[in-house]
């Protein structure tokens, strides 16, 4: 990350492509800032995206490609809806990348269990890309993905390639099946039960609704994974994204500056406080 200007002043960047993932989700590929002034971004980091005149939203990087920014956005409000309407050639403001990202260095040599729910697959996708690019540096890779329904799965083509590729143990489940769905139905925690891994060697990364992450963390800790090896990605309303304004303050921590990725032992007590 370079100087303060790129942290607080949006860079105008062009949209190179927009791909519809589901009825309410899009993946935007953005050009990189010129001149190498901004780092490529690490898995788990996020950018502040600004459709001009609407507002900013914190959106995770959903690929670790070095030559462009890739973001998958679910339309849940005015800003994300506006981002979803952007088309190739349009320009938007971008600040970032921000945040600490997933613990890729600690992950080396370990068994990785990734558990994603809904749009939570997007921030974990760069982890999968990074592991696949340097496969021998990591141990076994388990990916458990829960979606609302078959039609609401992200990256369907890529999921099929991952499933066929043999480089990971990928399991997908949906909460609500349909007549054409022959895969698993049930909450994502139901997939974890029979995965064979050594808890002492395992590092968990999970991203999705907080309720889901708590359930996943508790189940994995119950199987013997150390709370310090359980990583969650938290989300709160962010404004400055640089630890200045306090909008995303969560107890004594700032999600934007100290996170968004935390070990479970660091935030578990805060997740139980209803007022924050």
């Amino acid at each position: 990350m370079s100087g303060a200007s790129t942290k607080l002043a949006p860079m105008p960047l062009r949209v190179l492509s927009s791909t519809r993932e589901t009825a309410d989700s899009m993946t935007l590929v953005l050009e990189r800032p010129p001149g190498g002034s901004v780092g490529p971004g690490a898995p788990g980091q996020f950018n502040m995206l600004y459709p001009f005149g609407i507002g900013e939203a914190a959106i995770s990087l959903s690929s670790d490609t070095a030559d462009r920014f890739v973001h998958t956005i679910r339309g849940v409000g005015a800003v994300s809806d506006a981002l979803g309407r952007l088309r190739p050639g349009d320009t938007l403001g971008v600040r970032g990348p921000f945040g600490n990202g997933w613990p890729m260095e600690r992950a080396r040599g370990r068994t990785l269990v990734l558990v994603a729910g809904g749009i939570g697959l997007a921030p974990l996708r760069p982890v999968i890309h990074a592991v696949l690019r340097d496969r021998s540096a990591y141990g076994k890779l388990f990916v458990f993905y829960g979606a609302r329904s078959p039609r609401e799965r992200l990256y369907v083509g890529e999921l099929e390639r991952w499933q066929a590729g043999g480089a990971m143990d990928l399991s997908v489940t949906v909460d609500f099946g349909d007549a054409n769905w022959a895969g698993r139905v049930g909450f994502v925690t139901a997939l974890l039960g029979h995965a064979q891994f050594d808890p002492a060697e395992t590092l968990l990364m999970t991203c999705g609704p907080e309720v889901m992450m708590r359930a996943v963390a508790n189940q994995m800790i119950g199987r013997g994974v150390a709370p310090g090896d359980v990583y969650v990605s938290l989300e709160r309303n962010m404004k400055c994204a640089a630890g200045l304004c306090g909008h995303c303050q969560f107890g004594s921590i700032f999600i934007c500056k100290d996170g968004p990725v935390f070990t479970y032992d660091r935030v578990e007590h805060l997740l139980r406080v209803r007022e924050i």
Binding site: G117, G118, R148, E152, D175, M212, A215
Partner: peptide, 22 residues
């Protein structure tokens, strides 16, 4: 434990977590 796990999972499933902003 299996029944408890399934009850918990069924509760989560019924919340429709990925459909709502939870």
């Amino acid at each position: 434990p299996i029944i408890l796990q399934r009850v918990t999972a069924a509760r989560m499933q019924s919340l429709d977590l990925y459909g709502a902003s939870v």
